[in-house]
């Protein structure tokens, strides 16, 4: 039995103060440590959304797994989508441990997804109608994800930081996998080039939205202040979006693609990229599961979950029989 100690006799305020001291000292918080409800709930929401986004994110690319044009491409994209499922696994495990004291399991996460209580990233509500989209997702959506995820590598919550470390190591492969597809298209036939430009045009607004609104006043839903307070992340949405432009705009232009935003430029005096805002009302609609592919992909996920329920039921609570 754990020894009942002085810590448990502290007042809630003192516990909170001690917790914040640990956060500010750069210590990692572990699953069974005391934490304020706001911290726990913020993490659950963030990590469950992150995890379920990986799982839902497998779906637009999955479309192209059986269709990839060569044996090597079939293998590469299969490994990439497998990683997305694997990232979902890591993140859901982290979220599940945080939810355990609330009596919730993966079952509840899935039910929350189906009921619309648990959102997934805007980009995974969008259609991916060509092989160019498969390449572009690997290149730029993963690129955007790398920017946001590396920003949290030093997150104060230890299990999340450790999961992200694994994830980011694999994202390096994802980035190169995406680059390999898009460079083949960029150097290919006229049709292949058009396929790539078409995909960029389709995905541009979704990519800008991926980082979230600049401030809560844009959509009224940003959690960025709380996550920064608890040292879960360091940069704001807009800083991350600017980082993305800095890293990717020169590369996009270098391979002969055109940005679908003629106003886009770097302002030397302000030291930032000037760009056209995407339609944030559309963003709100998309993450409310009213995007072009939201319903279809949720249906796919729910159907497979329900259709396999007999397997989980057959083995739950079973003793090993081998």
């Amino acid at each position: 039995m754990a020894i009942v100690t002085s810590f448990e006799r502290l007042s809630e305020e003192d516990k909170y103060q001690r917790f914040m001291e640990r956060i500010e000292a750069g210590e990692k918080i572990e699953a069974d440590d005391w934490m304020p409800d706001e911290y726990r709930m913020t993490l659950i929401k963030l990590i469950a959304m992150h995890g379920i986004s990986e799982i839902m994110g497998a779906l637009p690319e999955k479309e192209w797994v059986p269709k990839a044009p060569t044996l090597r491409r079939k293998l590469g994209i299969m490994a990439k989508v497998q990683d997305e499922m694997g990232h979902g696994q890591l993140l859901l495990r982290v979220a599940e441990d945080l939810m355990a004291p609330l009596g919730k399991t993966r079952e509840e996460i899935m039910q929350d997804l189906f009921s619309g209580n648990l959102k997934f990233h805007n980009v995974f509500h969008m259609p991916a109608p060509t092989w160019g989209d498969a390449g572009l997702i690997g290149w730029l959506v993963d690129g955007a994800a790398i920017i946001t995820q590396t920003n949290m590598l030093d997150a104060s919550y230890g299990p999340y930081a450790r999961a992200l470390k694994r994830i980011c190591a694999e994202e390096v492969f994802h980035a190169q996998h995406g680059e390999s597809i898009i460079l083949a298209l960029a150097e290919g036939t006229k049709e292949q080039k058009e396929m790539l430009q078409g995909a960029l045009n389709r995905w541009w607004d979704a990519l800008l939205m991926f980082f979230g609104p600049d401030s809560p006043s844009t959509t009224g839903t940003s959690k960025q202040d709380i996550t920064i307070k608890y040292r879960i992340r360091t940069k704001t949405n807009e800083q991350l979006r600017q980082d993305f432009f800095t890293k990717y705009v020169p590369r996009i232009l270098s391979i002969g693609l055109q940005l679908p935003d003629e106003t886009m430029h770097y302002d030397e005096t302000e030291g930032k990229w000037i760009y056209r805002q995407p339609d944030w009302n559309q963003f709100k609609e998309i993450i409310r599961n009213n995007g072009p592919k939201s319903k279809e992909r949720l249906r796919l996920r729910e159907l497979s979950y329900r259709h396999n329920a007999w397997v989980r039921e057959a083995l739950s609570g079973s003793k090993a029989t081998v």
């Binding site: 999955k62 490994a79 497979s304």
Partner: peptide, 25 residues
């Protein structure tokens, strides 16, 4: 490869996909 993302639970999805990749290899 058609099963990818649709297996009975996530851990199995990942394991199954490795076997599929080996087999296509």
């Amino acid at each position: 490869s058609e099963w990818l993302g649709l297996a009975p639970h996530i851990e199995e999805d990942v394991a199954f996909s490795s076997i599929t990749q080996d087999t296509m290899g």
